[in-house]
Every structure is written in structure tokens, then in C-alpha cells.
Design a protein around this nucleic acid. Sequence first.
DNA 1: ACCCAGGTGCTGC
DNA 2: GCAGCACATGGG
Length: 323
Amino acid sequence: MIKTDVDFLNPGRICDSGQIFRMYRVEGKASVFLVYSGDRRLKISVKGRDVFLHCDTAEYESYWKHFFDMDRDYDALAAKIDPSDSFLARACLAGKGLRILRQDLFEMIISFIISQQKQIPSIRKCVEALCERFGQKHAPDGADNAERTGKKDASEGAVGLENGCVGDCGKKEEKAWYGFPSPHSIAAGGPEGLKGLSLGYRERYIYETSCIFLQVEDELRDAIDKKDFVAAKKMLLSMTGIGEKVADCILLFACGDLDSFPVDTHIISIMDREYGEKTDGRLSPARAREQVREVFGKYKGFSGLVQQWIFAYEISGQNKRKD
DNA sequence: ACCCAGGTGCTGC
DNA sequence: GCAGCACATGGG
């Protein structure tokens, strides 16, 4: 068991930050969380200001430490923000304990392809359904006889729904669970294999990108390892269903490219409302990007973290409070 | 029925 | 390069 504190790693804030779609509050227990990443699962509990990661030192050192970006000093970065920017100052304060995760690459690629034109609760449901159909099944205790779930008929899926989680969050730790699908498993299902998961027009994107990923994975990981994020972004943009915004999310949430700044509808409305020049009508994405460069360009090396602070603050609803 | 959602692809200029 | 539109599906 690993111990830290809520000012360093705040599970509730990370859970609600919109960067991870498979982190849940455990049903009935307000301060217990389950984090899923690829084929791993971690329980986190909070007691007062103490935060406990329920894993042994070996698993922590080999995976979760890196996953939660534990070596970075977020307070030092927070201290660098311009105090005259009151919106950012408030967002930063509200984001204490928020961290930029290093999530599984393929999981982020598919999750953020799904994210387009969807609200976060709906994204979570789609990702979950995808895991149940194509992911590896794991026994609740962790002593897993993991099996491929190549199930094609609806009867098994229906059982999963019946005992499944309630609403968009809430999980039971004593239940069997599914890992994130491998690109092979999705590709093997064929273009029709994704039907019935409420993915809509994204079905084709997910199938094609899974196939492409199998071919370019090594080259892509190579670029990321070398921190050649320009090359990595170029490769991501060549995959079906990945544009500027989704590529930036992947670079930020899986690759540790802290200079990546995804511009989405929330960021556009923030730029419009908090930093805009009172133009009539909505800011165009192009002009919003321009504004982002002007306002946040100075935070070299951690502008992506700045993005997360204001994004999480915006979707938390606290932005509406006036002081 | 209408509008929007952590956008992207495609067309036409 | 940039605007304009179609694209499924669910929720207000």
C-alpha cells in the first residue's frame, strides 16, 4: 500500500477531470475509487487528507507511479502562473491535487475518437461497452484466469448490463471486470463488429484506426519515447477519426507532452467569456486557438496542465461562482 | 421538434 | 489555407 495526500493526488478531482473515462467512485463508499488502465485495476481510498493506493511497491514502481506522474512538482508549476489572471488563479486553486495522467496509448486513441460530439457520461458508457465486448475478462480478486471475450451474441452482453454499474459512475470492486481491448481484438471483429454500442459514425473510425495502429505502433512509440511529439502528432493525424483536438488529447493524456493544449468547445467558450474581446457571436475555433497562444503561450513546458486546470474548473461548474 | 455534445472528413472555393 | 455541411446517438 502506498500513501500520499490529497494536495498531491486528489482522486475525486482526477476522476471528474475529463481526462480519464474509466475511473469510478465505488458504489456506496464516497471515498473509494477504482482506476482502470489497459488490463490493470487499482483501488484508491481517501481518509481525511490521506490517500492510499492499494497496490504493492513493485506494482507502484513499475506502473502507477509513472501513470500518476508522481515525480513532477505541480506546486512549483502552480507558483508560476500569472497572479493577475484571476480566472486561471481560481482554476489552479480548484485544481490542487489534479495530475496529468500517463494513460495507455491505444486506450487514449480509441477513447478520444469516441469522445467527439459526445458528453462525458455518454463517452464513459461507450468505452465501457467496448471493454465488455472486446476486452479481457478479469476475476474480481485479481487471481485472474483472464479469458478473451470473443462473444458475439447478445445474451452474454445482456447479463453484463444487468449486474452492471448504475448510471455513469459507481462500480463494485467484488465484480468481474474487463480490460481495455487490444487493437487485435477490435480489428479481428471486422468493420461490423462494433455495431450496437452506440458508437454511431465513429464505428468506422475505430475499426480503421485499430488496423492502422497495428501497422504503425512501433514507429509511433519510438517517436514518443524520443519525445519527438511533432512526428508523433503527424502519425496520429494520419489515423481515421483523429484531428487536431483528439491528437492533442492523446499527446497530453498518454504521452506526457505537457505542451499539448487541446482546444474544444469548453475551451472556446472560456476564451470567449473570460479572455474575449466582446465580439458578437461565438469565437471561431481558429480565433480561439489564436487567443490561446496569446494568453497561455507563456506557460512553456506546462501549458497542457494549464488547459486541464481551466477545463476541469469549467466542467465542475465552479466557474459560475462569482467573487 | 430543436439544439448541443471534449470534432472529423469531405467538398468547394 | 478557410467556410459549410453531413455524420449517429443521446440528453436537455
